[in-house]
Every structure is written in structure tokens, then in C-alpha cells.
Amino acid sequence: MNSIIQLQDLYKQFGQLKAVNGISLSIEQGTCFGLLGPNGAGKTTTIEMLEGILAPSSGKVLYKGRPLDDTFRHEAGIMFQHTALQDFMTTREALVMFQHFYENKVQLDQVIKDCSLTEFLDQDNRKLSGGQRQRLLLAIALINDPEIIFLDEPTTGLDPQARRNFWQLIRQIKQRNKTIILTTHYMEEAYELCDSIAIMDRGKIIAQGEPAQLLRKQFSDVIVQLPKEDVDLSFSELPMDIIEDNEYIQIRSLDVTETLRQLLALNINLAHLQIRARTLEDLFIELTGEQLRT
């Protein structure tokens, strides 16, 4: 596959703070790439350097093998984490304005349909709900039929239903063979949408690859978890590999049958027992030794 965008030894420093500390990446055309990490990890700084919004302190960003130029501006669609549109502008007017900025224009009806904007087309953009607003901003990012789309924490602040609806939109875009670069601190979101991911922490990439592959590589166990109130014993009395958690006793298990047998032998109430596979969140904690700083 061809690489559409490359980062070469990228650094960004704000005063004494090294926000991005030597990142190199290559993102394949037609894939969805996720940049993951907690708040303050350097995701937004990295994506803004990729978008050409921020200049790197050192290092290079290459789009189709060339530094970011006017061609990139015409072929990129960007949805920022925090942005605003001009006041007193309706959804339709915002779309029309952005449509005029580009040589390549998508049919307005098409983007309105794709992003489900019909119900609030003539509404002032300042009066839209969180989900509606994100759909409008995504529509604006798609107005030039971009080859590469940047989505910076697109579902932050959305309720679970709106988030899932948004995922559906992103899946539809993926089907059109577009390259998507997504930042998120929702590990589930990355797992659902991304073909490959990079986990960032403190300005560095600490893991990179396909989500399932990364999990397989790191973990061979599953988690057996029980609510703390169902277990009368202290951690030290349990003859198992335990992960501390505020609400649950989480047991690392290589053999679930054996673990269940041990729990029954200890007379523990298993009514609320859950068995779950390892997640990207587990991977993050495993790699950094910290809880996710959301």
C-alpha cells in the first residue's frame, strides 16, 4: 500500500514543555489511523502539525511525498476539536461558504444526506445540539470530497447514542476508501473504527500497530471481574493475580475454568461475575503503568 502522509522525527516544544518528542509515522492511503492517548499526551499537537496548522519545532511532514502545500489544503478535510463558525450563520449557509473555498466540490444534497443535516439546515449554527454540531463540522470537512480527513476527538462530549451514530458516519466514509486520521481518548472508539493505531503518552509513541494484533501480542489472558462488595476477602487472601480497581476485583486468568473453580472453593458469590477480553485501555495501563488520564 502507498503511504499518503509521513511524519519524520517530529518535535514540538512550547517553552520548556516538549509536547511532541520525536515522532515518526507513516500512514497508508485508504486506512483509518487512530492516534490514542490521554489528555495532554500530545495528540492534538501532533495532528495539528499533520494538518499544517502548527509548525513543527523540528522534523518534517510530507503529504504524498512533498511538504504540505496548496494541493494539500485542497485535498484535506479537517474537523478540529474546538472550533466555531461565524455568528448568525445557518447550517446551509456554512456549507455553501466552505463549498466556495474549494476547487473540488461535493454536491450539497449529498453531504446533507450523508451527515443527516436536513432537520436543522436553516437553523443558526450556534443553536445546534452537540451531536448536530459535530455532524455539521464533519460535513464541512467533507465538502471538498477530501482524500485525507482529520478528525480530532470528534465524539468528545457526545452522549453514547450520538457517539455511536457518529461512528456509523465514519464507517460510511471509510467505505469510500478515504484516509482517516482520528485522535481520541476513547479506546473503544479506536478499536471500533481504526485499522491501525499509535498510542501516545507524554509526547511519544509507546505502541503502534493493528489494535487486535497489539492486544494479542501483549496479552494472552482474559479478565474475570467481580464487584468488590461480593468478595469478603482481602486481596492478599485471594490466591490469584489481581488488578486493583475502585469498583471491581479484576483477576488475570489464563484458564477461566480453573479460576472459576478457585473462586467457588473460596465460597465467593459469583452472581455478578463478568468475563471480558483485554481492551486497548488495559493495554495503555499495561504500557504506561498508569490509569488513563481523561
Binding site: 494538518e51 499544517g52 496548522i53 496548496d70 489544503r73 485542497h74 484535506a76 479537517i78 478540529f80 474546538h82 472550533t83 466555531a84 463558525l85 461565524q86 466552505f98 473555498f101 474549494y102 476547487e103
Partner: peptide, 16 residues
């Protein structure tokens, strides 16, 4: 006001 609310940042990301 445009700069503070990131309206300008959004425009910067276009060919304008």
C-alpha cells in the same frame, strides 16, 4: 473574537 473562538483557525485550514 474570530481568533479567540477559532473561527480563524478553521479558515486557515482551508485554501482561503
Amino acid at each position: 473574537r474570530y481568533r479567540k473562538s477559532s473561527v480563524l483557525k478553521r479558515l486557515k485550514a482551508t485554501p482561503v
